[in-house]
Amino acid sequence: MSSPILKISKLNVMFPGLMRDAHVLRDVHLTVKQGDVVGLVGESGSGKSMTASACLGLIPNRGRATGSIVLDGQEIIGRPEAELANIRGGIAAMVFQNPMRSLNPFYSIGQQMVEIIRRHRKLGARDARVAAIDELQTVQMPDPEIAFSKYPHQMSGGQIQRVMIAIALACRPRLLIADEPTTALDVTVQAQIISLVRGLADRTGLTVLFITHDLGVVSTLCNRVAVMYAGRIVETGDVGSVINSPAHPYTQRLLKTVPIVGASSSNLETIPGQVPGPTAIPLGCAFRSRCNRATEICSTVDPQLKSVANDLMVACHNHGSAKSMGKQIA
């Protein structure tokens, strides 16, 4: 159970522009072993969704990808579309960030589920229907048979999100890529989804890449975490180490911004400044202008992701555990 099912090396994604090119992903490295549940976190626009899409060969039209993505032994970069279509929903399935974009408003939930299930599981219409309703039940949908015949606009935000998870799981993938799949769920349903995904990982060896901005979810669900900033993974390792003693200054600041119930403060921590956009990545470290540890080298040399401890990789010239700076966790 320890061979990598997904290995991303030196992945770069660039969009040519009239004035300046947009470097959306810059040398992304990530290795995911079978059965791992990896949390992918990071500032909005840092490239989490792009990384996920790239794994399924879904780079938007004008984008250029270089580097390598090996999924279950097959190179994704440069593979013809027809073969990619088989991989999607086969080996790997994805839950997209914006469910309304992946569902067709003119077909019922059931029609859409049956079509996808039949394409990937070679089931007859009747069995596919049973499988779809089963899967709706698994994701805690109330009245699954009724949900089956509903149209997307007749469901609540959280119900739609569960439909998306059900569709992805119904294809029985070995790798599940889920892009912010629980943002519309209340915490009790979210807990059930977390327990479902964890159970699948433990029992069936399902591998999961889980994009979220909820560090609590990462902590409860994932065994590994990767933190992205401005198109690059800046820290990755075992969840306990990264959350207990984050080594990258960005991760340290990120952990302090979480509002906590009962904290009774009238102020929330924010990270002052802005992420540099993909068309204006500065020389040196991209986090420099917001970093309280920056030294001279940070403005000239771009730090690469390096192993700094057993099972912990960081891209920072002045990395180091900052327990004393870390958030007081309730």
Binding site: I194, L215, V217, T220, G240, N244, I260, I329, A330
Partner: peptide
């Protein structure tokens, strides 16, 4: 009770 805690 279901709030996921960040405390590992």
């Amino acid at each position: 009770d279901a709030i996921p805690t960040i405390n590992p």
